Amino acid sequence: MSERKVLNKYYPPDFDPSKIPRMKLPKNRQYTVRLMAPFNMKCKTCGEYIYKGKKFNARKEDVENEDYLGIRIYRFYIKCTRCLQEISFKTDPRNTDYEIEAGATRNFMALKLAEEQAIREEEEAREEEASNPMKLLENRTKQSKNEIELLESLEELKDLNRRQEAVDYDSMLLAYDPTISEREREEKMQQMDDEYIKTIKFHSADKRKLVVEEEIIEEDAPAAKIPKAEVVKDVKSRSVPVVKKSIGGPTSSRKMLAGLVKVKKDEPKKEKEAVKPESSSLRLLGAYSDSETSD
């Protein structure tokens, strides 16, 4: 079974290619090709927009007496999809692009025009430098000035980097342990802050005050509450007791005084008890004397 797509043809031994009849065709004849619109364009006749990538059956021909470094330039003819106006454009191998010729205007050409303008200005500057030596000298002085400014800015950046070398980022990264949770890290930071606050000694330049608590114990009034007094000692002045009064009013002050003053209540009772036996003995003696006289 022979192949369906045969690449090698069979030529018989008596084949003579000169006997094949050839048609006389024009030198620059047109070919029908299938292509897509290479850019966005707008028809000049009806204003129809033709977007990039729209497919057309176009006619292709060679541009006579035009080439770029031996590369052929081709021209294409298409028709507007609305009014059937003929639109022509050709290839531009110098800029690797296409150039519109007739029938439509190209859209979004701002970037291309800007690039062309920049290239044109650059070429004009080169030509001016080649023809004018003073302009060349001015450009060289500007270039040297810009280089000096760049070197100065580079030195400033180096100085900033030297200042930041004191920070040891490696040790900081090593101290950071990703296994520790955020809560443990916060607790550790809080503990460090508390330790730092304890090391700081708060003191005034003129005076220093100390607060001492004193307790007064009541012997005879155990039911009363034990008041507390604060003594404020000053370095320059003597100690002055300051008694804090409770909210109870006058009764609380009496209880405090009762705790400070002791009343002796046992002595008069003893005197009375000593007097009573003497009086009873005198009465007995009188009764005994009366009995003797009567006898």
Rank of each mutant, 00 (worst) to 15 (best):
T251F: 01
M36P: 04
N65G: 06
K188D: 15
I216G: 12
K269D: 05
V63W: 00
E3K: 06
A175M: 07
T45S: 15
K44P: 06
F15C: 08
Q190V: 04
G47D: 02
E278Q: 12
Y49H: 11
S144Q: 09
S246N: 09
S2Y: 02
Y288M: 14
D170A: 13
S153Q: 15
A223C: 10
I100Q: 03
E271Q: 09
V263E: 04
E115M: 11
S239P: 11
S239K: 10
F15I: 10
G248F: 06
N161W: 05
S153V: 10
Y10S: 03
R94V: 08
S171F: 07
S171E: 12
K225N: 14
V232E: 10
G103L: 08
D16C: 02
V232K: 03
R4T: 11
P93N: 07
F39H: 01
F76S: 00
A229S: 01
Y98H: 00
K79C: 11
P93T: 11
L7F: 05
A223F: 12
K276E: 11
P250L: 07
K55F: 02
L157N: 10
I216C: 09
I148Y: 10
V240P: 03
E219D: 13
C80W: 00
D97Y: 12
F108M: 13
Q191A: 15
L284F: 02
Y169I: 15
E273Y: 00
P13C: 01
P227F: 05
K55G: 03
K44D: 15
I78E: 04
D194A: 12
G286T: 09
